[in-house]
């Protein structure tokens, strides 16, 4: 299932999704290359979260085509399994497993899904916790950690599957201001290491610094797609200008 680089690691072709009568995604088309970092922004309810959740099929799309790493997302059970192993995800509310220790949170998937030996899985978990800067918390329960630490554990948990793509669904929105930086730092490091990342966020500083491209969503549509430079200084679309003026003129 290798992928020719010019085809793209994620391909969206006219993807539609409805919640009942509500048309949440209205014909999304875009392509993402390996190693790219894309930031998706837009007002709430614009479909940006829904969009990235279709990538690992937490949401099903009803029309169009989504191809991730050469595998099309269909009702094929094996394809879904394959893609979920290759795509890591970090959530707004962390969603750590509260009944498991931090180490177990991270080592769970390698042990059960990749069928690694327990010692090996825990070794990897320790390494990842070191990478996100909290190896000393390994034996604690999630509730004993601060929000920023929890989100870093969540990143480590996602990385434990050695994913090819990482999805971040508003990773800093639930954090207190003083903890945002520690999470963004981890994400920056990840981006520099060459990880393919899609990040839904309102952190425009992060977008400017790290993103290769910024994608702007509104009303379930992809309104504008541009480099950070162009996006901030020369937005093409009226809707984008309005949005930028609303979030930047503070």
């Amino acid at each position: 299932m290798s992928v020719t680089s010019n085809e793209g690691i994620i391909i969206y072709r006219d993807v539609h999704k409805w919640y009942g009568d509500f048309h949440a995604l209205r014909g999304i088309t875009f392509t993402m290359q390996k190693g790219e970092v894309i930031v998706i922004c837009g007002p709430s309810g614009s479909g940006k979260s829904t969009c990235i959740r279709t990538i690992n099929r937490l949401e099903e799309h009803q029309r169009g085509q989504i191809i991730v790493d050469g595998v099309e997302l269909t009702n094929d059970l094996r394809n879904i399994d394959t893609i979920r192993r290759e795509v890591g995800m970090v959530f707004q509310q962390f969603n750590l497993f509260p009944h498991l220790r931090v180490l177990q949170n991270v080592a769970l998937a390698p042990f059960w899904v990749l069928k690694m030996k327990k010692s090996k899985a825990e070794e990897i978990a320790i390494q990842l916790l070191e990478r996100v800067g909290i190896p000393e918390q390994a034996q604690k329960y999630p509730a004993q950690l601060s929000g920023g630490q929890q989100q870093r554990v969540a990143i480590a948990r996602a990385l434990a599957m050695t994913p090819k793509i990482m999805l971040f669904d508003e990773p800093t929105s639930a954090l207190d201001p003083e903890m945002i930086k520690e999470v963004l730092d981890v994400m920056k490091e990840l981006a520099r290491s060459g990880m393919t990342m899609i990040v839904v966020t309102h952190e425009m500083g992060f977008a400017r610094e790290v993103a290769n491209r910024i994608v702007f969503f509104d009303f379930g549509q992809l309104i504008e797609e541009n480099t950070p430079e162009e996006f901030f200084h020369n937005p093409q679309h009226e809707r984008t200008k309005l949005f930028l003026s609303q979030i930047l003129d503070y």
Partner: peptide, 10 residues
């Protein structure tokens, strides 16, 4: 060539 590799819904 790639489109063959992509498993389609059919």
């Amino acid at each position: 060539m790639l489109s063959e590799k992509i498993t389609s819904s059919h």
